[in-house]
Structure formats: C-alpha cells, structure tokens
Deep mutational scan, measured.
Amino acid sequence: GCWSIEHVEQYLGTDELPKNDLITYLQKNADAAFLRHWKLTGTNKSIRKNRNCSQLIAAYKDFCEHGT
C-alpha cells in the first residue's frame, strides 16, 4: 500500500525509504500522463539524478490525492 505522506517527507532519501523505492512505486502505479507531468519517465537512475527529494515528495502527494 501507500506510505503516509508524513513518512515520505521524513524518510525519503534515507535507508528507510530510498528514492529508488518511491520512483519504482510511482512508475508501477501511476499512469503515463502523471509520469510525464512529473518527469518520472525513463530509467530509475536518470530520475534519481534529475529529481530531488522535494520534487518526488510533491509528485507522491499529488498521486495520493488524485490517485489513478
């Protein structure tokens, strides 16, 4: 299931919640338009490089609020 937004804000980028895991989750569960909008298409590695934690948190919040 979903992590809470508080959990993501607190732990994203740590061993508790690697950016990797959040990106994988969104790529698996969000639709193509969402991924394009948040620039989460492409390889996990390129996304990790190009999107910082606050951008990923914003995307995750949007996903939780509007889910697909």
Rank of each mutant, 00 (worst) to 15 (best):
W38R: 03
C53G: 06
N50S: 12
E65M: 14
P18D: 05
D21S: 15
K19G: 03
S54T: 13
H66E: 11
L26G: 00
D21N: 13
Q55R: 05
A33F: 05
T24K: 13
I57W: 04
Y60S: 01
N20A: 15
R51P: 06
Y25P: 01
K45S: 10
Q55L: 06
W3R: 03
A33N: 14
S46T: 11
T14E: 04
S4H: 05
K49V: 06
L40T: 00
T68A: 13
Q27H: 06
C53P: 05
D62L: 03
G42P: 05
L40K: 03
T14S: 12
G1E: 14
K61H: 04
C2A: 12
L22E: 01
L17H: 01
Q27T: 13
I23V: 11
D15H: 14
K28E: 11
K19N: 04
N44F: 11
I47S: 07
S46P: 04
D15S: 14
N29G: 04
W3I: 03
W3L: 06
Q27S: 06
D15M: 14
T14N: 03
L12V: 06
H66I: 11
A32N: 11
T43Y: 07
D62N: 08
E16A: 12
C53Q: 06
L56R: 00
D62Q: 12
K49A: 08
Y60L: 03
K49L: 07
H66F: 10
R51Y: 05
A58F: 03
E16H: 13
Y25G: 01
L40E: 00
I57P: 01
F63V: 01
Q27E: 04
C64P: 02
L22T: 01
D31C: 14
G1K: 15
H7R: 06
E16Y: 06
R48I: 09
K39T: 05
L17R: 01
A32H: 14
C2K: 15
T14C: 05
A32D: 14
G42V: 06
V8Q: 00
K19H: 07
T24F: 07
V8D: 02
K61V: 08
K28P: 00
G67A: 11
S4T: 15
D62M: 07
R51G: 06
N20G: 14
K19I: 07
T14D: 02
H37S: 11
A33T: 13
K39S: 09
P18H: 15
N52H: 03
N52D: 05
R36M: 11
D62H: 15
K45F: 03
I5G: 03
L35G: 02
Y11T: 13
R36E: 10
A32F: 10
G42D: 08
Y25E: 03
I47L: 10
R36F: 10
G67P: 08
L40R: 00
W3P: 04
D21L: 15
S54Y: 09
L56V: 04
C64R: 11
L22K: 00
D15L: 12
R36L: 09
H7S: 05
K61S: 07
A58G: 07
G42E: 07
N29H: 14
N50Q: 12
S54Q: 12
L17T: 01
K49F: 04
T68N: 09
E9P: 00
H37I: 08
S4N: 09
I57C: 12
K28D: 08
N29T: 12
L12T: 04
G1W: 06
T41M: 11
P18L: 05
G67L: 15
I5Y: 13
K61I: 11
N44K: 13
P18I: 03
G1A: 07
Q55A: 11
Q10F: 05
H7K: 09
G1V: 11
G13L: 01
T14F: 02
Q27N: 03
F34G: 00
C2L: 12
F34E: 01
T41H: 12
S54E: 11
E9S: 11
E65C: 08
G67V: 13
R48M: 08
E6F: 06
L17P: 01
Y25V: 04
I23E: 03
K61P: 00
T43V: 07
L12D: 02
Q27W: 03
V8I: 06
Y25C: 07
W3Y: 12
C2N: 15
N52A: 08
D62R: 05
Y60A: 00
H7P: 01
N50G: 10
Q10W: 05
A33M: 10
D15C: 15
L56W: 01
D62Y: 07
S54W: 07
G13D: 05
D21E: 14
H7G: 03
I23S: 01
A58P: 03
C53V: 12
C53L: 08
Y11R: 11
N50K: 15
N20Q: 14
I47E: 10
K61Q: 11
S46Q: 12
